[in-house]
Design a protein around this nucleic acid. Structure first.
Lengths: 90, 90
DNA sequence: ACAATATTTAGACAATTGTATAAATATCTC
DNA sequence: GAGATATTTATACAATTGTCTAAATATTGT
C-alpha cells in the first residue's frame, strides 16, 4: 500500500475535496471556491491527491475537471478489510 | 471522522505497528525492538496510535501490553464504503 | 498577437512532525 | 528502600508540510 495514499488522506482539506467529488466531478476552480484558502493552495492539494492517484483529471478547454478514482478507494477498503477487519486477537 | 485517525495512519512506522498487532498483542518493548529507531520514538508513535483510539493498552506488571482496537477499523472501513464505495460519477 | 480567464509552479515562511538523548515514572526483586 | 527493568515524558532539532504571493503556462476570444 502506497505511502503517498495515506499521507494524502491525512489532511482535512483534501478529504473534503474528495467528498465534494463524490457528489459530482468539478473543475479546479469550482473546488477551490469552496475553501477559504488561496486557489494556489487548493491546487497544491489537488496535486497531492493526483500524485496519490486518488483523483484523475481531464482538460476541458481552459478548465481542468477533476474526478474521483474510485478504484483506489476500493483498494483502501480492501487494505483495511484484509489486515484489520478480522476477528479480535486472543 | 476524527482527524487524528488519519494523521495517525499517515506514518509508515505506525502502520507497521498496527500490522504487528494484527498477529498478536505485544508489549511496548516487543514492538519497539522491531524497529531501528529509539524506544522513546516508538513510544511516541504508540502514544499517537492510542490518542487516535487505534490501540488500547493494559498494564501487566512492569510491561504495558498493546492491542488493536478493531472497532475503530470497522469505522474506517465504513467511512470509505459509505462515502467512496458507491458507483462512479456521471 | 494581445488581453482575459483558468490553473499550476516556484520560492518563502511558519507550523507540524519524526527522531534523538536525557530525565522521570512505574513495577519488580532483593 | 536500593537497584534493575520497562515505559513514558521533556526538550531539542532537522525534515516535512500547508499556506501565501508572485510568476509561469495554457486556452479562448477578439
Amino acid at each position: 500500500m502506497d505511502d503517498s495514499l495515506f499521507r494524502a488522506l491525512a489532511d482535512p482539506t483534501r478529504r473534503r475535496i474528495l467528498e465534494l467529488l463524490t457528489e459530482k466531478d468539478r473543475t479546479a476552480g469550482e473546488i477551490a471556491e469552496q475553501f477559504p484558502i488561496a486557489f494556489a493552495s487548493v491546487s497544491h492539494h489537488l496535486g497531492v491527491l493526483k500524485a496519490a492517484n486518488l483523483v484523475a483529471t481531464e482538460r476541458e478547454g481552459q478548465f481542468i475537471r477533476y474526478r474521483l478514482n474510485t478504484t483506489v478507494f476500493q483498494e483502501v477498503v480492501r487494505y483495511f478489510m484484509t489486515r484489520f477487519g478480522g476477528e479480535p486477537n486472543a
